[in-house]
């Protein structure tokens, strides 16, 4: 096994210098997600401006994969329309659940493509999706009904 394939520099960079971290006010939806097998936690807030994702703020503790994934999430969805954010959510979920067989589109997932290595380790999929599932649940709480559909964590 090649550790470097899983822990790509991009992931370690996001882990050590996370983007968008911290809980901010005001917000329209909030979610607290926990991975019951390992105790990783993430609290995430989303603020909407009409159809735009105006801000995503979060705090939590967990492994490099879960924390880096939340950091990448903020890069990918903040400033985008809700529809674009949901399509990135779908693409990211497809990638990490793909057992290494899904070819990621860098135009869509940007730094998120670095999680292709994680996809080969089923035990780490939940880590990679923790922040994304929190984002999805926070959107639902903010009244975005269409966020109810699609990806589930397991």
């Amino acid at each position: 096994m090649n550790l470097d394939a899983m822990y790509q520099e991009i992931i370690l960079d996001h882990y050590k210098n996370p983007h968008g971290r911290g809980l901010r006010e005001p917000f329209d939806g909030e979610s607290y997600q926990v991975n019951p097998t390992c105790g990783d936690e993430l609290q995430l807030r989303v603020r909407l401006d009409g159809e735009q994702v105006a801000d995503v703020s979060y705090t939590g503790q967990g492994c490099s994969i879960s924390q880096a994934s939340a950091s990448v999430l903020t890069d990918l969805v903040v400033g985008r329309s809700v529809d674009e954010a949901l399509s990135k959510l779908a693409a990211f979920t497809e990638l990490v659940k793909g057992r290494g067989k899904v070819e990621p589109d860098e135009d869509v997932l940007e730094d998120g493509v670095a999680f292709a290595g994680v996809a080969k380790y089923p035990a780490r999929v939940k880590c990679a999706l923790l922040g994304w599932m929190a984002f999805k649940a926070a959107l639902v709480q903010a009244g975005v009904d269409k966020a109810r559909e699609g990806a589930e964590i397991s």
Binding site: M1, Y7, D40, C63, S64
Partner: peptide, 27 residues
């Protein structure tokens, strides 16, 4: 993080448990 320690150990063939081992209040 323990998960990451476990992943490195796994890459060396060493199987350990990571997480709260079904003893969350103790952790």
């Amino acid at each position: 993080h323990p998960h990451d320690v476990g992943q490195v150990l796994d890459s060396l063939g060493i199987a350990v448990r990571v997480g709260h081992h079904c003893a969350w209040p103790l952790h």
